[in-house]
């Protein structure tokens, strides 16, 4: 019973991810985001913040609600906070969170690992199935060509700071694609240069593909998205000129394969606030 429930859950999750992820390219994936309405708090008492969670191409207009059962909330003291109840609508999910420890908090929504197998069928049409290399063996139609299986690791993060920012939640775990300072994510100011360093498995990651988009894309003609890459030290440098929330997407192709996939990519999404100077 448990097994079948789990199976159906993971199948649902995979489907949901597939819907969100769309096809393989970063440009076409439905980017998922966590949008806090406050990033910096100054009160003397614990304070509640409210956060929207959705996936959309229009930044930040909700489109597809995200399940939040797997969200992780990391506290400044190094612990984890449980998320209480949350609302999941059709277009967005919403949760409130009590910030009761001074310092910087991290919220992260990680998708279960997704496997896509792409192929060309005998009529020459490009197709894909949600299956890893082994599962695909049984599912691929006869005559399938150009078969390639890709693995995607996807997560989205946002940071909140009460009182002074600190570094605990920014410590590297050494696993997968991660972001770190020197610019603290709660310390981004419009007009000031920002430097974020990216790591893969604890090592500086060069050539990570970055897209940066300021909020409110639906209220302007020019999307104003910047495409950048990290340098040889894994550093991303840019100057946000627009005040307000920004959306960062980072994608890296790992040079490795496994029994389940021919290639593996990680996508890391982050929402941050460019503050008034």
């Amino acid at each position: 019973m448990l097994k079948s429930t789990l199976k159906s859950w993971s199948r649902k999750a995979a489907l949901a991810t597939a819907m969100v992820l769309g096809v393989s390219s970063l440009a076409q994936a439905h980017p998922m985001w966590l949008l806090p309405h406050e990033y910096n708090l100054s009160g003397e008492k614990p304070e509640w913040i409210t956060v929207d969670a959705s996936a959309s191409h229009t930044i930040f207009s909700p489109d597809k609600a995200l399940g939040l059962d797997r969200i992780s909330i990391f506290t400044p003291e190094g612990g984890k906070q449980r998320l209480g109840s949350y609302f999941k609508g059709h277009r967005r999910s919403v949760f409130d969170l009590e910030i009761d420890q001074p310092g910087t908090w991290k919220m992260e929504l990680k998708r279960p690992t997704v496997y896509f197998t792409f192929y060309t069928n005998k009529r020459g049409a490009k197709k894909r199935i949600f299956a890893d290399k082994q599962e695909a063996q049984a599912q691929l139609p006869k005559g399938a060509e150009d078969v390639v299986t890709k693995q995607f690791n996807v997560s989205t993060v946002a940071y909140i700071t009460w009182q002074a920012p600190d570094e605990k939640v920014l410590e590297l775990t050494g696993k997968g694609l991660e972001i770190a300072g020197p610019t603290h994510p709660s310390d981004v100011v419009a007009g000031d240069e920002v430097n974020f360093q990216f790591f893969v498995d604890g090592q500086p990651a060069k050539d990570v593909e970055i897209e940066l988009t300021p909020h409110n894309t639906k209220y302007r003609n020019d999307r104003m998205m910047q495409k950048l890459k990290t340098d040889s030290e894994g550093m991303l440098s840019f100057t946000p000129e627009i005040v307000g929330p920004w959306y960062l997407t980072a994608k890296v192709d790992h040079k490795r394969q496994s029994e389940r996939a021919d290639s593996e990519s990680s996508l890391l999404y982050m929402t941050f606030d460019a503050q008034l100077p």
Partner: peptide, 20 residues
């Protein structure tokens, strides 16, 4: 007044207030 809104002195809060 209430320190909850001290952050609205955005630059002061960011540059020094939050570090006490």
């Amino acid at each position: 007044g209430d320190k909850k809104w001290l952050k609205d002195l955005r630059r002061w809060w960011r540059k020094t207030g939050r570090y006490q």
